[in-house]
């Protein structure tokens, strides 16, 4: 059993507005182990993004507790690269924020970028890159923080289908080869199956974990290959039904 790195214990979060209060999550309990890739799916508007904000510590639960061992890096739907900075400077951004902008950290960040095919684009500005390349740069920026957990908030949903499959492949191989722990939020069932070791299915709001599955793809971690396996469609059917309960 590997070390537990993130734990939600009976987490309830209530949003307050003038019109009233809405429970986004209720008694949400799950945990994430080191090196694991967990996908969370749920009906739209079920508070998936709230879950990530809680995990990142941007919000405090109304009751229950969120325990995190280590730092986390957030990757969003859009790449959110700053258009006035070069790709290289964008990748340094988290180092500047965390006041760790040392030559060594910068060097390792650049090496990471080069390793994953961004060497030709380091001096380019974000608008000059394709959507896929930008999302890759966003991932490298997230990794430059050397986070212990990656929080992925539907990172492919803004891309067209073709790019989406490619970037999905990219991100998966980068995360696997860097041996990072990842928590992916998505509404795309096939994305969850093709990427994760474990899938959590949330209920409608207020969100709870309704089902939990450990996927049986063995050593196969490549999303495209997984999509070809017979288990893929079986899992799809199961998750599809569970989502519609």
């Amino acid at each position: 059993m590997k070390n537990e790195i993130l734990r939600f214990d009976n987490v309830t979060l209530t949003y307050h507005t003038k019109r009233g209060e809405t429970a986004a999550t209720e008694n949400l309990t799950f945990s994430l182990n080191e090196g694991e890739f967990v996908a969370v799916i749920g009906p739209s508007g079920c508070g998936k993004t709230t879950l990530l904000s809680l995990a990142a510590g941007l919000m405090k639960p109304s009751s229950g507790s969120v325990t995190r061992h280590g730092t986390c890096g957030y990757m969003l739907q859009k790449d959110e690269l700053f258009p006035w900075r070069t790709i290289e400077k964008n990748i340094y951004l988290p180092l500047e924020i965390k006041r760790q902008n040392t030559p060594e950290r910068r060097k390792s960040a650049v090496e990471l970028a080069k390793k994953y095919g961004l060497s030709d684009f380091l001096q380019s500005y974000p608008p000059q890159l394709s959507g896929g390349m930008r999302q890759r740069a966003a991932l490298i920026r997230t990794l430059a923080m050397e986070p212990d957990i990656l929080l992925l908030d539907e990172p492919f949903s803004a891309l067209d289908y073709q790019t989406r499959l490619n970037v999905c492949e990219d991100v998966s191989s980068i995360i696997r080869s860097e041996e990072k722990t990842a928590l992916l939020i998505t509404h795309d069932i096939s994305e969850a199956i093709s990427l994760a070791d474990r899938v959590l299915v949330l209920t409608k709001r207020p969100a709870r974990v309704a089902f939990e599955h450990t996927l049986d793809f063995g050593e196969e971690t490549r999303p495209i290959k997984r999509r070809e396996k017979p288990q893929f469609s079986a899992w799809f059917e199961i998750l599809w039904k569970e989502l519609n309960i």
Binding site: L58, G73, L76, Q77, E80, L93, E96
Partner: peptide, 20 residues
């Protein structure tokens, strides 16, 4: 989105002002 990104990196208000 960019505000959320900076906050997730742990940026304070002054840094958000400066960088973004």
């Amino acid at each position: 989105g960019k505000l959320l990104l900076l906050r997730s990196m742990g940026a304070g208000k002054l840094q958000i002002l400066q960088k973004l």
